[in-house]
Design a protein around this nucleic acid. Structure first.
Lengths: 114, 114
DNA sequence: TTCCGTAGTTCAATAATACTGAACAATAAA
DNA sequence: TTTATTGTTCAGTATTATTGAACTACGGAA
């Protein structure tokens, strides 16, 4: 794996970047899974929980976009890459944004019934 | 101008579509301008207020994306195209979403000072 | 050590989107 | 009619996204 895992400072994150990252349902699902998890999960664990079968390269790109947008922080643990959502920082920078987006996504799927 | 101006039913709008539309600062600026206006504005009026000089074709595409995402409703008034934001409907479908995104964008620019 | 398996990354080719100049269509006004 | 205005469509170009294949890095077994 490449050496440097660059994360933007929270004050350098942009709304456009965050919205772009979260405009993809799969990336939203990853974020939600990371939020729900008791412990830090690696990429494989997340995709397993999501029960999707996506190519590793695609997965890697999605994490890169989430990372570069400032939504997650990733760390290497041996061969694995574990990630967590930057909840506190994001809340401080853009209060309510992440939650309302996640709410909206839930609303969308919830209303599918009937 | 082409005849049919198709607008999605509000229940067919998606969060992904809305986030994608609002992931572009210019489109957000258009939405904000439409929200602030006392009366319905046409495309030219909006771009004039924004003091940007963007090609007509580009402008047209942005409006199409806003329309197809469900964010705005457009009507032809003679040669002009006037638009308004679907505030009520959006609020009913995804409560708080639009406002928190607009807030976040304001936060972002506000913090640029100092 | 060396070898093997696992977890992700990078590269490159292809596909899908976005941007925009130029030609066009539709309406209003002269 | 003719002309000006407003926006659309088309087509070419550029940017971004997807993904198979080769690769890197680390841990564990032998």
């Amino acid at each position: 794996m490449s050496r440097p895992l660059a994360h933007p400072n929270i004050e350098d994150t942009t709304v456009a970047g965050i919205l772009h990252a979260l405009a993809d349902p799969l990336r939203v699902a990853i974020v939600r899974e990371l939020l729900n998890a008791e412990a830090r999960l690696n990429c494989t664990q997340v995709t397993n929980r999501l029960e999707v079968d996506l190519p590793k390269s695609t997965c890697s790109q999605h994490y890169r976009i989430l990372r570069e947008s400032g939504l997650i922080i990733s760390e290497r643990k041996g061969v694995e890459l574990t990630s967590r959502v930057r909840v506190r920082e994001l809340e401080a920078r853009f209060p309510g944004l992440l939650q309302s987006i996640l709410n909206a996504y839930e609303q969308e799927t919830a209303k599918t019934q009937q």
